[in-house]
Write a protein that binds this DNA or RNA. Structure first.
Lengths: 335, 335
DNA sequence: CCGTAACATGTTATCGGTACCAAATAGATT
DNA sequence: AATCTATTTGGTACCGATAACATGTTACGG
């Protein structure tokens, strides 16, 4: 293959200096418009392709925003990513995506790797990180955004909501509808910390309201989905009739639970209530529609994008910003 | 903030040349092991962070593999991405993800942008591209992989299956079960070309089998999902009873169709069959389970990763490789 | 004690843009 | 015509790592 076409080549062909080409291609007003057009023309004809790597190196600005997600295979996180991606589009920033598989250790390695690319900001999902991760990040003068949580001790900016509070709303709703014997369906290992927060939120509010102890139904290791919800219920067997509400860590799990209840000829919500979390599409299309918590996944991404745009534009900040996007009860037909 | 720590600084601190530091950090065997340990130690103490941008610039190897997906918010594409990501992990390649929103024009701009980052390979979803995109790509000596399709005129390597063929299998199955009057539920605009291929596959096989003309039920513009399927059916009203099978472009759509049929008190599969595509989780958890086409989304990603590893390792290739991962009928309870 | 191989480290130039400063040219004003 | 300002262009050094080559150092047999 022939050697790569550089600005030098374009400059030579046009008869100007590389500097002028550089300016022209960045649409610098100081370059005569006719020259600019000519340069663009020739660059195109020669098949010149701008080298962002070289630019990133010289200017020490990578044009990257690093993002960590627990899983890309989750409609809510995917929506957040889209919101972020669309929101950052105009600024010309590119997202560098990495997935942690719900593990803070994996997150640590990911952060380490991402930092070597010199991102101009980093967006983390969740507020739980290893000490090493915290150290790595604070050693750099880099905008940090934590999303999807409201961490007690944030690393920087925050865009999220309280999982525990949202679950409290849900439990209150169930109690007010006369439900007392609650089961919680979710992962019981400790890797999915957001799931753990939800579980703890359920338990805490149940205690506050004087409900019987919430029983934890193991759905296996995170991440849990439809089939795990179904399995958890079928593992219970006839004991499922002891409950009058099953609170699930997410909508897919709730859908699995719902399907399994139906197979067992339980009436939902007559015999038992089922609730989800996240307001996934499946919640509203399912029949009956699932009562859930509406999280504004896309909005989280958009808010993060707005925040970052402000930071990049140099808008003065008085301290880290905390945006609580909230989460609301979405009543379906399963409670 | 203090200036960034570079290899120079580490070198000075240890009392060796930057070159030795460079070698040590890449675990070059020729550097004495004691020196290597010392250098790692000092680098760590100084908070040195390797600069991949500089490396990428100097070596002219970005360490990036560019990937375009129609949508990140689609469980199947997300799975493919994961398969690819996990498969490429060991090689140290990072994925640069962009989403085209099912538009070849957006794909073109995306490709243009991605190319400026000097990716070492590019992976495109689908086999339909603008001429400009094709030109941009072939002007570079860059491994290209098209996935999820079997394009007639591939740009490079291919890992995919034939959407039309898969649909033919499905239609044959329906015809053998005595279904004759088919409706097709999918997007009717022309942006989702994979969807169009599926539709054409249905029509073609119906013609071959001498079935009555397949009626196209519009589910709105791509991408279509659960609610669009439901809407398409409810828009039909009582006319839905004219059909004895509804073939849907995807499982989420089929699920929406199924739910709506149920609301309309239709017996599935007694009165009408419903089929999906993609073997999404929802197909197997839904009650009744949805008959669908099992595409090996994750496997596609893994196969692409294997292919790329081979290419990076320099394994000699005799021409572009075409991997047909196939797609199989997954019988559920809706047909 | 020397030559040579094996090992370990150093020197120099360079990847492709762009910040910074200098200079040339055109047009306006006195 | 000379001077000045505005506009447009050019020259040079450099971002941080590393390929390619050169040099130094040790070990060992003869």
């Amino acid at each position: 293959m022939t050697a790569r076409v550089t600005m030098r080549d374009v400059a030579r062909a046009v008869g100007v200096s590389p500097m002028t080409v550089s300016r022209a291609l960045r649409d610098d007003e100081t370059v005569n418009e006719k020259t600019r057009r000519k340069i663009r023309q020739v660059a195109n004809d020669l098949g010149y392709v701008y080298d962002t790597t070289a630019q990133a190196f010289r200017t020490q600005k990578s044009g990257f925003v690093a993002v960590t997600l627990p899983s890309i295979n989750n409609a809510n996180f995917a929506e957040t990513f889209r919101g972020l991606s669309d929101g950052l589009g105009p600024s010309g920033m590119q997202l560098l995506l990495g997935s942690t598989n719900y593990s803070v250790e994996k997150e640590q390695e990911l952060v380490r790797q991402l930092l070597t690319r010199n991102p101009e900001a980093i967006v983390l999902t969740g507020g739980h990180h290893t000490d090493e991760t915290r150290a790595l990040l604070s050693a750099r003068n880099l905008p940090i955004v934590e999303m999807w949580d409201l961490p007690a001790d944030p690393l920087g900016h925050v865009v999220g909501f309280s999982n525990a509070e949202a679950m409290a709303t849900l439990v209150t709703h169930l109690a007010e509808s006369g439900r007392r014997r609650l089961g919680y369906v979710g992962a019981t290992d400790l890797t999915d910390l957001r799931g753990a927060e939800r579980r703890d939120g359920v338990i805490a509010r149940a205690v506050e309201l004087g409900l019987p102890e919430v029983e934890i139904l193991d759905a296996g290791p995170a991440p849990v989905s439809m089939r795990h919800g179904a399995q958890a219920v079928s593992a219970l067997g006839s004991r499922v009739r002891e409950f009058d509400a099953l609170v699930c860590v997410s909508d897919p799990v709730a859908f699995g639970v719902l399907s399994e209840c139906r197979r067992m000829s339980l009436d939902v919500p007559g015999d038992i209530a089922v609730t989800g979390f996240g307001n996934f599409e499946v919640a509203s299309v399912s029949d009956p529609r699932i009562t859930t918590i509406g999280v504004t996944a896309r909005q989280i991404g958009e808010q993060v994008a707005l925040l970052l745009e402000d930071l990049f534009a140099g808008t003065p900040q008085d301290g880290p910003r905390v945006v609580n996007v909230g989460a609301r009860l979405v009543r379906g037909e399963t409670s």
